[in-house]
Structures are given as structure tokens and as C-alpha cells.
Amino acid sequence: MSTDIGVWIAAFLTLGILSFLYKDNPFYKVSESIFIGVSAAYWFVYMIYNVIEPNLLGNLQKGEWWYAVAGILGVMMLFRLIPKIGWLSRWAVAFMIGTGAGLNFIVYLQSNVMKQIRGTLAPLNSIGNIMMIVGVITGLIYFFFSAEHKGLLGGAAKVGIWFIMVSFGASFGYTVMARISLLIGRMHFLFSDWLGLLH
């Protein structure tokens, strides 16, 4: 059994969260509240020491004054907390939204549309290629809303949903895999680091 007090704290909190499995209870809620507070603090400190200090204050110290604009917009963002001048935070939000929209417009078109079209344009010369081309085309037809799914289109949409279901099956299997892995990690901690029963 571990003699490290940190491990004991960790084990105690682990059990606190796991107690939710029995039912929602105060022990769980306390652990969860600590989680929320500590997590917020972690983000906060990282913002200060990994972004604000080097990228804003550091540059201002070097005399690169145009960074001040970013600083001002950033502080305006915090005005959201003060109801009277909260509307000023929209300037900063608008900047972020504009940047995101401008970049997304291009990169999604390039990486997730054009490059995917290019990847699908292949000769029908192997079972793999045929599967890919039929799957992409019928899948797109399934999500086409401007025409009734009847006749040929209906048939194609039906094939499309089969493909989608197979891919959801794959997602299902992978998601189960992910959840189990995380549990193994935690159990390994309890039985190895804390109880010392495993190596």
C-alpha cells in the first residue's frame, strides 16, 4: 500500500467519483465540485503563464506596441462580467468569430471538400474503390434534402444509410474501446499505485 499522501488523496477522490455508480451522493458531489474548481484554476494559470505573459506582456516589453490592441480587446472581453458595459465584449467576440469564419471557410473547403473529392475520384478497378465511390455517393444522397427519396434516389439513399450504419457500427465499437481503456487506466492506478497489489 502506498505511503505517499498524494496517492492517498488521489485514491480518495477516485473513489468519490466512482461512488456515483451506487447513486448520486454528497461524497460524489464534493469530489465533483473540487474537480470543477481545480480544473478552472488549471486553465486560468496556464492562460497567465503560457499565453498572457509571453505573448502579450513579453511583446509589450519589447516595445511592440501593436500588441496593445489585442490586450485592449482581451480586456474588453472581460467586460461581459459587468452588465452595464457588457456590450463592449462583442467587439472582441466579433473579432474571434470573424477570424474563425474566414479561416474555416477556406480550410473546410480545401481539406474536407476539395481534397475529399480528389481522393474519391478513382477508377472503378478494385472492390475497395467501388465500395468507396458507392459509399460516398449514396451517403451524400442520403443527406440530400431537396428531393423526395423515391425511385432511384430512394434506392441510393437506402444504400447510403447502410454505409452510414456500418460506419456508426465502427464508431460504436471504437467508442466502447475508448471507454474501457479509460477504466483500465483508473483501475490500474487503484490496484497498483495505491494498493500496491500490481506491478
Binding site: Q116, G119, S167, A170, Y174, T175
Partner: peptide, 24 residues
Amino acid sequence: TAVSAPMLYPYLQTKQLSGLLGGL
């Protein structure tokens, strides 16, 4: 993570990714 692996397979076929480790 395994959760996001299936969604990234199209990038493998186009060689946008040279390889992919999915989950554990």
C-alpha cells in the same frame, strides 16, 4: 482516442495523414 479514430479514416485514404494510431 478511439472515439475520434473512425472519423479520421478519410484523411488516411487521401494521404493527408501518413498513419494513424487509434485508441489503446
